Amino acid sequence: MIPMTMPKKFTKENAHNFPISFILSTIYRQHTIYLKNTLKPYDVSVGEYPTIMKLFKEGKKTQHELAEAFHMTEGTIARTVRNLEDKNIITRKIDKNNRRQNFVYITEKGEKIASLIENFDSLWEEEVCGFLNKKQKNEIKEILYDITINSLNQNKK
């Protein structure tokens, strides 16, 4: 993979001249590259990562709930679920109360992988944000939370 080259004018002193979307996109892309390389030995793609972690942290979900959570189509989620099921990372079970609906669960293998992913993410965050103290990290996360909510609301208009 070719390393990303930053614009020459993107410096700490000039960062205010760049859109927030550029900065967030750069961070996201670098995290994606890290995850792609880190997850390769576990046969997990970057696209499957959010589904694994959601089920690991929150337990069973319907495919509809996953689609809503990730702002994706149910078809996209269905493909992800099928791929993860083929790898024995998740399993689907029919809802006893609604036979047209499946619940998606993480398997024991999936839990082991999710635990590793959680550790990898912590290491990445520490490497990238290690110069910040806990208060600064929390402030950034709160600001990014507000930006996230505003961006979701903007797209609903």
Rank of each mutant, 00 (worst) to 15 (best):
M1N: 02
I2A: 08
M4Q: 11
K8T: 02
K9N: 11
E13W: 03
E13Y: 03
N14G: 07
N14Q: 12
A15K: 11
A15H: 04
N17A: 11
F18H: 00
F18V: 00
P19W: 03
P19C: 05
P19I: 03
F22T: 13
F22L: 12
I23V: 15
L24V: 06
L24P: 01
S25N: 13
T26A: 01
R29H: 11
H31D: 03
H31E: 11
Y34N: 01
L35P: 01
K36L: 10
T38Q: 07
K40I: 03
P41R: 01
P41K: 05
Y42C: 02
D43E: 04
V44I: 15
S45I: 01
V46D: 05
V46I: 09
V46K: 03
P50T: 02
M53Q: 12
K54G: 02
E58S: 13
K61H: 15
K61M: 14
T62G: 08
Q63S: 15
Q63Y: 05
H64S: 11
L66I: 06
A67T: 08
A69H: 10
F70M: 02
F70N: 00
H71I: 12
H71R: 10
E74Q: 14
E74K: 15
E74H: 13
E74F: 03
T76P: 00
I77F: 07
I77M: 07
A78F: 06
T80W: 01
N83Y: 10
L84M: 15
E85V: 04
D86L: 12
D86M: 11
K87G: 03
K87W: 02
N88V: 07
N88A: 14
I89E: 01
I89Y: 12
I90N: 07
T91L: 12
T91Y: 10
R92H: 04
I94S: 05
I94M: 05
D95M: 04
N97S: 11
N98C: 05
R99D: 01
Q101Y: 05
N102I: 02
N102S: 14
F103Q: 02
V104G: 04
V104Q: 02
Y105F: 12
I106G: 04
T107K: 00
E108H: 06
K109M: 03
K112D: 05
K112P: 01
K112T: 12
I113H: 06
I113D: 01
A114F: 00
A114D: 00
S115Q: 14
S115G: 13
I117D: 02
I117M: 13
E118H: 14
E118T: 15
E118W: 06
W124Y: 10
E125T: 11
E126G: 09
E126Y: 09
E127S: 12
E127R: 13
G130A: 06
G130R: 06
G130S: 08
F131Q: 10
L132C: 08
L132Q: 04
L132E: 01
L132T: 05
N133D: 08
N133K: 03
K134C: 03
K134W: 07
K134R: 12
K135V: 08
Q136D: 11
Q136I: 08
N138C: 05
E139K: 15
K141H: 06
K141E: 09
E142T: 11
E142A: 14
L144P: 02
L144S: 11
I147F: 00
I147K: 00
T148M: 09
T148R: 10
I149K: 10
I149G: 04
N150H: 14
N150M: 13
N150R: 14
N153C: 04
K157Q: 14
K157M: 12
